[in-house]
Computed example of a mutant assay.
Amino acid sequence: MRTIAEINEKISSKRAVVLTAEELKTRVEEVGVTQVAKEVDVITTGTFEPMESSGAIINLGHTDPPIKIRRCWLDGVPVYSGFGAVDLYLGASSAVEVMEGEEVRERGGGHVIEDLIAGKPVHVRAQGQVTDCYPRATFETTITRDTINQFYLFNPRNLYQNFIVGVNGGDRPLFTYLGPLQPRLSNAVYSNPGAISPLFNDPDLQLIGIGTRIFLGGGIGYVAWEGTQHFPLQKRLPNRTPIGPAATLALIGDAKQMDARWVRGCYFKNYGPSLMLGVGVPLPVLSEEVVAKCAVSDKDLVAPIVDFSIPRRVRPTFGLVSYAQLKTGRIIIEGKTVRVAPVVSILFSRQVAQELKQWIQAGTFTLTEPVAQISMERSFLPQDRWTEF
């Protein structure tokens, strides 16, 4: 029906018809897939959820005399410095180092990334390996995003296509990457916004590939590669959506252009720091099939209920539950009514999709053709051969 070039021409002349995924699903119910495919050029999706496999590449710039940094801390958070002399990688889940006897500070790399994006000063302390060309041994200063050369997010694993629902069938509270899980199935937590999530609306990654331009943290980013733990061979429903964790993407984008509203450090009690990140992906309406797949609703999407009280990689499940049921705030597990809440922000996920829609309507955001497809044949390789526990 259309090409991306034709859609971009309409975007540039501010004639493109853009709907959020939520708006599109409502419109399909009103007039059907065929009519919507004729009307709409772009569909915007969004999520705002914890993405701890994220981080920032930072180049400080050379000192005088120069230093070859081999240990470094930003506001007390250790950063990786094992490549170029003043190149650093700040992981979102890296925690503030504390001295013995000190209280744990609920702060980590995600908070430092947020502060830098917000323009706040960040303290740097570095130790160097002294060489003939790098004679300096130590360095201490304060930086902001405007006083460093490069500052960009390079996230190895974002945008899980689906995830799990966490519960705790044991006798004590558990503190997890989904937050606290109370004993004896007293609560449940999920971490995907469901039908408005980017990869649920392109289940076979026919539209999203390497080089796809996206909304990342309030700035422009790109799909860089498949994400770590990418598992597209997950079992799928007839509508092609997976029944559990499946495809993932690695993302990259200039953090100097980002907005701290969409990049927020967070901390999970007794687990550690992470990063709440807003990501939006535009889907070009190239055919009726695109609309048909985007018409999927929360009742058509499921996630597995996983018991964290079993300390194994493969944990028992209590079956599958639809996102429509999850969003009611109550689910039934073995005849028991269990409270359920999202760690993802449904409100902010909607706002990401809406903001991306506004960018496209204003003609400031055009679409890109992927330069390569993401593999849909990747298997998942666990480390089970030499397991010790």
Rank of each mutant, 00 (worst) to 15 (best):
E6I: 10
I11N: 06
S13Y: 09
V17Y: 03
L24S: 08
R27M: 15
E29W: 03
E30T: 12
D41E: 03
T45D: 11
L60S: 06
V79S: 08
E97T: 14
E97V: 15
M99I: 13
V104Q: 10
E106S: 08
G108R: 01
I113E: 11
P121W: 01
V124W: 04
A126I: 05
D132V: 14
P135E: 07
T144Y: 07
N149F: 13
P156Y: 11
Q161E: 10
V165Y: 00
N168T: 00
D171C: 05
F175E: 09
L181R: 01
S186P: 06
V189E: 02
Y190M: 00
F200K: 12
D202H: 01
L207D: 01
T212N: 10
V223A: 00
A224L: 14
E226L: 14
P232A: 01
A246R: 11
D254C: 10
A255C: 13
W262N: 01
Y267H: 02
K269R: 13
P273D: 15
M276F: 08
G278S: 05
G280I: 03
V285G: 07
E289A: 12
S322L: 04
Y323W: 05
Q325A: 13
K327Y: 04
V344K: 03
S345V: 03
Q361V: 12
A362G: 12
P370K: 04
P370H: 07
Q373R: 15
I374H: 08
I374M: 10
S379C: 04
Q383I: 15
